[in-house]
Design a protein around this nucleic acid. Structure first.
Length: 687
DNA sequence: GTTAGGG
DNA sequence: CCCTAAC
């Protein structure tokens, strides 16, 4: 068949080339148009779930010393009702015994000495970073950190995990003072139902999962970048200068095995191509899910988790913001059960004014809470049949913060504050999840929505969803620090100042100043998950309180399984489109030259021969570019857009295209120089 | 992992 | 650029 693409350029005496290859179009291309329909993978959820598992595992293995056997090995077993009930009891008793603890759980964390935390974190982090060159290890380290924190909980030192937890809690308070209050009230009045609270107190770790503040030691170098716009400018400058030779750090980092000469100070993020990562993730999840069910493969889970994370980072790489904001769909979850309070107050968002970092916050919160609850109650009485909800707390979307070790505690605080403010400032919305599905119709009555006292409130959850739609670029997270450096040493040049090396080529990774929109990422409407997915994980098996908040259906495994199953994760959250990088004339030149030699159909060779150092150009990119070049060359100059390509080049494009269309490139012995020769001859990188 | 094409 | 199908 003749490809419809065949061109009749009549160039160089070439006749309209007939495309030799059978049109792929013939090949059956299934109408996968239903992609939209595809359930969207809620990466975050998944992340949360995985993270939870990981934490659990780590805890079980890493710290036997963790609080009174709260953490048990049998993590994977989904928390079923039975367990929950048991847990409940346990919790109850616990709550009584450690009432103070519980209290602290709510707010107290806020009061934890941040300095200590910081120090701890730094130290821990460092250790982890150094010790591990590999992701897996890193993970472990992190986990351990978490554990250690836990251990030290009573002491001054609370690891980052704790910090995060605190943060989350405090935030929660803010956000939903009303709701929380209720919870508290319940506690006091009805201990039975206060499971949620208890659980909260008990396992900080769990909380971590959802709201982590990661403080990375490596950050010192990076921090500046994050926060400082100037560096970017510099980078940008570089970027502009960059030509073919330039390596896209993004792409590179992932491999870590590329030439060591590359310098990529700032982006530890691996990124060998998100595409790959994505794929990996996807496939991994799919595969892993089932396994997790069975409880076993943490390693797998971990890996996935990390990959996932990487992906996130990758995606955010260009963004500049002091903080990374993630989690969109929030981990929040809520619990619902019937107690005294009415749910009406739930949706009220708290006043921003409250400061998290303030030690006194807890007290304030309490007061507020009580006030709120009172109000609510009165309200409640007025009505007849009500559905009562008690929301323990909302989780704050996960935040990742990086601060240099040398940063002051004050700056850390500010950073956290910024992160929180960013989230709150951008608006938060509450989502209602019933039986794993989001209830979107705001106009429906509870009844209509199937939310009634008699129904399974267990499956009801609330989520806090940051609305990033309004996020301003400045708010957007800045580049991520290397969360997972492939190599500890990789980032040799720690100084931000020297992103590039002299040779034009393989160095400097420069990040385009592109601002990614978070919107896409954040569109979480697709994210459905059972309310407690995140939470439960940890709870279920390892912790007695698992029951906690939201007794949810058996979920862990399920949730995991479900997520992965999604055929196409799509770019729902993280995967953003790569930033567009128009080919420069030089690149086009190189491409044309390579194709002239190698012909079409050998994109890999073209890549290797002429763009090996241009990591951001994949062979697919080259192929696509060629495609567009051919098209461009075939249209009138007036119709061309973008940076004008010298006609001379376009002519060559047509010429080569014609030629190779006639001569199967693969069969051309004489015309197919070895890659080696190509390299030496016109490797783009050389310039 | 590549290549070819459609989107 | 992305995504897929077909290799």
């Amino acid at each position: 068949m003749v490809s419809k693409k065949r061109l009749d350029y009549g160039f160089n005496g070439y006749r309209a080339p007939i495309i030799p290859r059978a049109p792929r179009s013939i090949r059956r291309r299934s109408p996968h148009k239903n992609s939209i329909e595809d359930s969207k993978l809620c990466a975050f959820e998944l992340l949360a779930a995985v993270a939870g598992k990981l934490l659990q595992e780590s805890e079980s293995s890493a710290s036997s010393s963790v609080a009174n056997g709260k953490f048990q090995p049998g993590i994977c077993q989904g928390g079923n009702k039975k367990e929950q009930s048991l847990d409940d009891k346990a919790l109850k008793s616990e709550s009584f015994d450690h009432g103070s603890c519980a209290e602290s759980a709510f707010i107290p964390e806020i009061s934890v000495p941040e300095q200590n935390q910081l120090e701890n974190n730094s130290a821990l982090e460092q250790t982890s970073v150094r010790a591990t060159s590999d992701i897996r290890k890193k993970v472990d380290c992190d986990i351990k950190l978490g554990t250690s924190e836990v251990k030290n909980a009573d002491g001054n030192t609370i690891s980052k995990v704790e910090g995060s937890i605190c943060f989350g809690d405090s935030l929660n308070c803010k956000v939903e003072g009303g709701a929380e209050m209720h919870a508290k009230d319940d506690n006091n009045q009805i201990i039975d139902s206060s499971l949620a609270d208890t659980s909260t107190v008990k396992d900080p770790i769990e909380e971590d999962v959802n709201t982590n503040l990661l403080i990375k030691s490596e950050g010192s170098v990076q921090l500046p970048l994050y926060r400082d716009p100037i560096p970017d400018a510099l980078l940008q400058k570089h970027w502009n200068n960059v030509k073919l030779g330039i390596r896209d750090d993004d792409e590179n980092s992932f491999g870590c095995n590329k030439s060591s000469t590359r310098v990529r100070p700032f982006r530890p993020q691996p990124r060998i191509g998100h595409r790959r990562i994505r794929k990996m993730l996807t496939s991994k999840y799919r595969k892993v899910a089932p396994k997790l069910k069975g409880c076993g493969l943490y390693s797998e889970g971990i890996r996935s988790f990390y990959q996932y994370r990487k992906r996130i980072y990758t995606q955010e790489r260009f963004q500049q913001a002091p903080i990374k904001k993630r989690k969109l769909s929030d981990h929040t979850f809520a619990v619902a059960y019937h107690q005294d309070t009415s749910s009406d107050s739930i949706s009220n968002l708290p006043e921003k004014g409250t400061k998290i970092d303030n030690e006194s916050s807890s007290a304030n919160i309490l007061q507020r809470a009580s006030g709120t609850s009172a109000t609510v109650r009165g309200h409640q009485k007025a009505k007849d049949s009500h559905v009562k909800f008690s929301i323990k707390s909302f989780r704050v979307p996960e935040l990742y913060i990086e601060v240099p070790e040398t940063a002051s505690v004050g700056s850390l605080k500010r950073t956290v504050m910024e992160a929180v403010t960013a989230i709150l400032g951008n608006g938060i919305r509450v989502g209602v999840v019933l039986q794993g599905k989001k209830v979107r119709d705001d106009n429906r009555t509870l009844q209509q929505a199937g939310i009634s006292q008699s129904s399974n409130l267990d499956t009801l959850g609330f989520t806090l969803e940051p609305s990033f739609s309004h996020v301003s670029p400045s708010m957007a997270p800045k580049k991520l620090p290397s969360a997972l450096p492939c190599d500890a040493d990789q980032e040799l040049p720690r100084s931000p100042a020297t992103p590039m090396t002299d040779s034009g080529i393989g160095n400097g990774a420069v990040d385009p100043p592109v601002v990614n929109k978070f919107d896409d990422v954040m569109d979480n409407d697709n994210l459905n998950f059972s309310p407690q997915t995140p939470k439960n994980e940890p709870n279920d098996a390892s912790i007695p309180d698992s029951k906690a908040l939201v007794p949810v259906p058996p979920m862990n495994a399920e949730a995991l399984a479900i997520v992965p199953v999604n055929p196409k994760p799509k770019r729902t959250e993280i995967s953003q489109r790569r930033t567009r990088r128009p080919f420069s004339v030089a690149e086009v030149e190189a491409l044309v030259a390579a194709v002239e030699k190698l012909g079409t159909g050998r994109w890999r060779d073209v890549k290797l021969g002429a763009f090996e150092n241009a990591d951001h150009r994949t062979y697919v990119d080259l192929k696509d570019k060629w495609k567009t070049l051919v098209h461009t060359a075939s249209i009138s100059p007036q119709q061309r857009r973008g940076e004008p390509v010298p006609q001379e080049l376009l002519d060559r494009v047509l010429s080569a295209h014609s030629y190779w269309s006639q001569h199967q490139s693969k069969q051309q012995g004489k015309h197919t120089p070895s890659v080696e020769s190509l390299r030496s001859e016109e490797s783009v990188g050389v310039a």
